[in-house]
């Protein structure tokens, strides 16, 4: 199985390459990709350097161009496709029908992956992109159970990549407007979930408040670790109860499912986190490289080693990890 690691900067890219990634995924420094944050991502120079660095070490580079352009912004996306093709990236990860249409008609040799932002959770949808745009791989949304992934792979005409570790999107990506509802920008339209300019951290005598677009997302006691205010991970009132109405701020960790994921016929494991530091990328890439290698050597005897689990828990967002939708009771 291929290990696909995030790189939000040149140091992160090098960290991923040096610690065992088979491929890294990166984005331009603008709203053409779904991790558009200040100080993150690549300009033309760093991207060229990064691609050269990865290529010299046998690591593939995928470029995420996975937001949805509107007419006024279209030239920027078109230029981004052209630049990606010129730079010779190993694959373009896209979601929008217009971007796919342009890429296939202008750069027929360019390898295309369907982004998780394309919301393809069933093989009929995947077949659509395969038949019309010749996609070679799909990244599955984090809404499917392991049994559903197994079933889908059997009928899927392309390679399947699944999320293995990192922040957990509880919603079907590509169809989530929670961020734009509260803050005016969404992953689809601007490449941003909870844009930093709309986020507030407010100290109060009883603890910390986090807000998005003015809306109170959560209150943290003095002994609690405050999380970044995403709408899906807030504590709200429903019928007089205050709780995480949508999802606890857990992160996804599927290490223990690795043999089953492999047996299901999954081609690649994706690590989330282009917004994370080079140190984080190094640690996570190292653990997953070792785990995948161990699983390839002896899937039947695979057991996550305690030190892997400890290292991943240490870097996880929040304090808990979950198997997410792969595990039916979670649903």
């Amino acid at each position: 199985m291929e290990l696909v690691c995030p790189a939000g900067s040149l140091p992160s890219l090098k960290a991923a390459v040096d610690h065992g990634a088979d491929a890294v995924y990166i984005g331009f420094r603008d709203q053409t990709n779904a991790r558009h944050f200040a100080g993150l991502n690549f300009d033309a120079v760093t991207m060229e350097t990064g691609i050269r660095y990865a290529r010299a070490r046998g690591t593939h580079v995928y470029l995420a161009l996975n937001t949805y352009p509107q007419p006024a912004g279209w030239p920027r996306w078109q230029t981004a496709v052209d630049r990606a093709a010129d730079l010779g990236v190993d694959a373009l990860i896209a979601a929008d029908l217009g971007v796919f249409d342009y890429a296939t008609s202008t750069w027929p040799e360019l390898r295309l992956h369907l982004s998780v932002q394309g919301s393809a959770a069933n093989y009929e949808a995947i077949r659509f992109y395969h038949e019309h745009f010749g996609i070679k791989r799909v990244v599955l949304p984090r809404v499917l159970s392991l049994r559903q992934v197994e079933h889908l792979v059997q009928f899927c005409p392309v390679e399947v990549e699944v999320f293995g570790f990192g922040s957990l999107c509880v919603m079907m990506e590509g169809r989530c407007f929670l961020s734009s509802f509260a803050a005016g920008e969404s992953p689809n339209s601007c490449g941003a979930c909870s844009p930093a300019r709309a986020v507030e951290w407010r100290e109060t005598p009883t603890g910390l408040e986090t807000r998005l677009g003015g809306m109170l997302i959560d209150r943290f006691g003095l002994d609690e670790k405050a999380g970044y205010p995403q709408v899906c991970k807030g504590r709200y009132q429903v019928n007089g109860q205050t709780y995480y109405a949508l999802e606890e701020p857990n992160s996804l960790n599927t290490l223990s499912l690795l043999p089953q994921i492999r047996a299901a016929g999954v081609t690649a494991i994706k690590i989330e986190g282009r917004q994370r530091s080079p140190t984080y990328i190094s640690q996570v890439a190292r653990v997953w490289r070792a785990a995948i290698d161990a699983c390839e050597r002896d899937a039947a005897g695979f057991v996550p080693r305690p030190e892997w689990v400890a290292q991943l828990n240490k870097v996880s967002e929040g304090t808990h990890t979950t198997l997410g939708a792969y595990h039916r009771p979670w649903r």
């Binding site: 949805y68 279209w74 029908l97 217009g98 249409d101 394309g118 069933n122 009929e124 949808a125 019309h132």
Partner: peptide, 30 residues
């Protein structure tokens, strides 16, 4: 869902709120 689009292509259909059409290129393609 695009799975439904695949099954409906070739006949008249409506692209509902679940289908992302953000630009004319996407609209023309469908």
């Amino acid at each position: 869902d695009m799975g439904a689009v695949r099954l409906l292509q070739g006949e008249s259909f409506v692209a509902g709120p679940g289908i992302n059409i953000y630009n004319d290129r996407a609209l023309t393609r469908l």
